[in-house]
Design a protein around this nucleic acid. Structure first.
Lengths: 215, 215
DNA sequence: GAATTAATTGAACGTTCGTTTTATTAATAG
DNA sequence: CTATTAATAAAACGAACGTTCAATTAATTC
């Protein structure tokens, strides 16, 4: 046998990507074999090498495009010139929506970094750092404007990102909570965590956080 | 060659555990070979099978003992009968201290669950759930007492745990921040996130969170 | 000091891995 | 209709994998 009727390179490549994201998320990159992946696509293992020269190239492609997608989504969602509270809200909403929509790809991008070569790891981390820097900038602007109360900008940014990304670990669409409810909760937790205010001197708490007490 | 001078089963087994935690954390369980592990210990691969019947038995042992250690640490640290704020503070402090101290083992326990058999996965998850339930209980008690302002207890517990455990991803002892500083920051972020109060009606915010605003 | 037990080596087993090569067929271009 | 290109199958490669087994030596017991 050789070329099969109806075979199409573009469709096959798309099927390979999709199956790879799902399989790597479920089994892990090292545990997934090229033969397993091929079987999932309905093809022989050798056919995969027409689209990706090595297994690692496949992984890197998935990760790079995931990070590019995240940066692109934020570029599209970011408010042009708004106050820190609005910008932070936009960041949280975009982050949650993007990660819930791409649970599997996020899993791959977060868990399989160690299977990348040094050079490619650096590339992916550079994109990740650029994305995180956006949040740090918002937090710093808000702190300088007296609208946020934050101990340490870098630490707070990491804590927020870990908290938000963690949603993919436990959240399953169609269960107890809706995406909108989850987003609203995370938004409210975020605003309270950073001590968001409208203006310095006002005493109305953000969300349901009232009557807090000094440590 | 055969038995080497000075060889000791207990010491070898301890060395195997230690090397395995470090190697699995760095390379991943699937990527670490038994020959690599043996070389790290300074022994032939066959010798490992004197202590662990299979590679998966080794992984499971590491995970189970990590979770048992976490539950034991919390049992020792938990305040007998205290108010929700104190109990929450104790939970956060214990969690951060334990996870910073055992970064590698935590990495293994969180990232390699999929390499466990169904039965063993269930065992580990049962312990993890028991640990998380402790936090949910504290949050619920605090909310019922009117000392916390929380949308959803389960969601908040997951968000807090993800946030706190995430410390092992970026924190490195001996760098910019000390363990004490990090702990204090996480404690303050936690208290603000849950809207902690001393008593309903008081208007003094916890930590630096003042002048918050309604969503 | 002989017998026994504990700890380890070295070699090998069958399997699976990522990848390459070659042949073959489907689709397309002239 | 023929020539060319695109897409795949089938088979094979050497290497590495987890694991087993028999032999060997150190430590311990009697």
């Amino acid at each position: 046998m050789a070329r099969t009727t109806g075979s199409d390179g573009e469709k096959t490549e798309a099927a390979v990507r999709e199956a790879a994201v799902s399989l790597i998320a479920r089994l892990g990159y090292e545990a997934m074999s090229m033969r397993q992946l091929a079987a999932e696509v309905g093809v022989q293992a050798a056919a995969l090498y027409r689209y990706f020269p090595t297994k690692e190239d496949l992984l890197f492609t998935l990760m790079r495009e995931h990070m590019e997608g995240l940066l692109a989504a934020w570029s599209a969602a970011r408010p042009a010139a708004a106050d820190p509270v609005s910008r932070l809200a936009a960041y949280v909403e975009n982050h949650i929506a993007f990660h819930i929509e791409r649970r599997h790809a996020t899993h791959v991008s977060n868990m399989e970094l160690r299977s990348l070569s040094h050079e490619r790891l650096t590339q992916v981390l550079k994109m990740r750092t650029a994305y995180e820097k956006e949040l740090r900038t918002i937090l710093r602007d808000g702190a300088e404007a007296g609208m946020f109360s934050i101990d340490d900008t870098g630490l707070t940014a990491m804590a927020l990102i870990q908290m938000m990304t963690g949603v993919i670990v436990w959240f399953r669409p169609g269960e107890r909570l809706s995406v909108a409810e989850v987003t609203a909760s995370y938004l409210s937790m975020t605003m309270r965590l950073v001590g968001a205010t409208i203006s310095h001197g006002t005493a109305r708490p953000y969300g349901r956080a009232r009557d807090a007490v000094a440590l």
